[in-house]
Amino acid sequence: MINQILLGLSNGAMYSLVAIGLVMMYKVSGVMNFAYGNMGMFVTYLVWWLTSVIGINLYISIVLGIIFAALMGISVERFGLRPIRHLSHGSMLIVTFGVLMILEGLAVQIWGTEYKAFPELITGTPLVFKGDFGIIVLRRQDLLVFVTLTTISILLLLFTKYTKFGIAVRAVSENEEVAGYMGINVGTVLSFSWAFGVSMAALVGFISAPKVFVSPLMLLFYQIQGFTAAVLGGFETFTGAVFGGLILGVLEKLVESYISEGFKASFSLAIIIVVLILFPKGLFGKTLRRRV
């Protein structure tokens, strides 16, 4: 049981990472980015190419990949979305669909559909703990995911709570027009949110790639689960995204182990429907009463 929960938490932490990026872009720019997974996929391909074909050190390639991801996020927002911001969210949504298809097509054209093996980011024997509770096996890979999620969550919390730019990000996400009147450069905040969001997608790509291999559809599943995690958490707060992902991961794993693997996807989606009916703002959404 404990092992199952740990495995679930490990999967869930990945969903959380996906959800954090989605929530950041959604909160600030108001757009649900459908190209999210494919943007991460494309960057993962690029890093695979840099390291396996060109022969650059894996970690340097990853840093280059993150920089490329940030630039890609900034460009899509700046040139694809900002010119039509005044139209509607629907039209921006369509643009993200377009980006999704373009990137998928490009990846197939450039790298083909064959699965590529991505080097492990961390290697070593699993950690094994024995005690009254039985045996717990912790893979290094899981440890990497936990550490990444914890680090990013803490940094994000400190950033949005205690830095000037972090407060500006929250201000823009709450009221873009008024934030502009405060002298906040809304464009810079939009660029930041997309740079951050796509970097998260890339990060998820790098971490998952050794397991799922690099392919044009590699992040589709994570995108869906991350979206579900974000909905579960209320789509408004990073805390919600983090815990939404973890809860989803554990539930999914328990269903898989104790009921049936076939039920995994449908059961967790069913739970989400129930949660949304009972808590329309997600488990962590704040219902704030505003005085007039």
Partner: peptide, 21 residues
């Protein structure tokens, strides 16, 4: 602005800090 437009989910202090951006 009209209608105050304060940042409802942020604290008083954070609102003021946003103003001093």
């Amino acid at each position: 602005p009209e209608g105050r437009g304060i940042f409802y989910t942020m604290t008083v202090k954070e609102n003021l800090l946003a103003g001093a951006y």
